[in-house]
Amino acid sequence: MSRDKFKTLTEQMYYILICMKRECCGTDIMELVAEMTDGRVRIGPGTLYNLLEQFSEAGMIEETKVEGRKRSYMITDIGEKVLAEEYERLKAQIKDYDRYFERGQI
């Protein structure tokens, strides 16, 4: 998976990477994201499985522990950089929105 793929993140990608600031497995991520967003964002196991595979290939996360069928992951420096860039992009969007509407140029 090329790094370009993650130049911008989808909502689901964004929340998965946030969750992985601390070590967690697939089930933890799904629960955490639902909790973090009050159920607004829900990640299906198929999508999560694929994204973890892609993040792992892109070096954005790394496997930290394997317990039976359960694998745990954590975000890497590359992943943090991508997440930070996305945060800045979202912040810029909000800033643009605020500036535009404050001026009343609808």
Partner: peptide, 14 residues
Amino acid sequence: AVPIDTDEEIKYSS
């Protein structure tokens, strides 16, 4: 239940 695939682009790629 939450669908298994919640991102069509990813499913399409699979």
